[in-house]
Design a protein around this nucleic acid. Sequence first.
DNA 1: AAGGTTATTATGACTCACTCACAATAAGTG
DNA 2: CACTTATTGTGAGTGAGTCATAATAACCTT
Lengths: 160, 160
Amino acid sequence: MSTTTTRDWEGELHTHARRVTKQRLAVLAVVERFPHSSAEAIAKVARETLPALTVQSVYVVLADLHTLGMVRRIEPPDSPALYETRTGDNHHHAVCTGCGRVEDVDCAVGHTPCLTPSSTTMTIRIADVLYRGLCRDCEAAQSTEATLATPNFPSPTNQR
Amino acid sequence: MSTTTTRDWEGELHTHARRVTKQRLAVLAVVERFPHSSAEAIAKVARETLPALTVQSVYVVLADLHTLGMVRRIEPPDSPALYETRTGDNHHHAVCTGCGRVEDVDCAVGHTPCLTPSSTTMTIRIADVLYRGLCRDCEAAQSTEATLATPNFPSPTNQR
DNA sequence: AAGGTTATTATGACTCACTCACAATAAGTG
DNA sequence: CACTTATTGTGAGTGAGTCATAATAACCTT
């Protein structure tokens, strides 16, 4: 049950002319189970069921799956790249500047939002929106912390 | 003339209780002159007028100026962080997936766009939109290249 | 204008995320 | 089952950036 998946990864790999390996399946299972995971984190979890798996291989696998479009890669500031299997729809992400937590955010507008910038000579293909804010927990923590710390000396943006 | 600036950096540094040093002024002048420059690139240009300046110092200066809000830092995928002096307005950026060129893009909507995501429990502070597309030159280059290369085997996203 | 204090910079070592070359392994094919 | 070749493991290497510490130089005081 540790490798239960909802999608037919084996089939998708086949259609992309890729061999179906334990490593790829393990990585895909972990990414599906824990969206917004870093390569390192994925390796750690995958090694529970596949101890010989190396981090380097995870990088290689993820890079390949990414070029295939089977995983999406997001690169929040001050964080290693994160991966998710939810591709195809163009949803966006909100990162908590306190704890680094990442949440999916559906399009503000129903369809591709902000895809018509006011002024540019480029032909725009995609628009990634990265929201930054504070999650519930961090907001609570911050307000209590503010009463404890020196009030007029805000700590530098030390987010994760 | 190499250090001509339009803004009163000296004054701004003073109001932020920072000492006015050659290094800071040099960095600010370069960032103002060449927006969307990397730390390395900034160091290279700044060294023309201040040869002893080290890259590490540029990193330190930029980090500090960033926490002060005097420079804005953008982190395009597959690129080192880039810096610009245009702060305060919330404009966005378009990166060319061909050559890595970065252009400023004013808000699609007149005011803060997409600041009301449909669903999230976070308190959103800012929304950075990153457009990706092809600039004129790369679009031209790509179409001619397409006629030369194997047509049905698109090269992997090798963007800079 | 000189001296002292303390922020700032230079130096060099170091980390982190990730890539690359090459040898070992194992999918898939006949 | 053997064979071919993609894939993985191994180990070294790179680029971007940080950190500790010593040297330097702004700014304040006088």
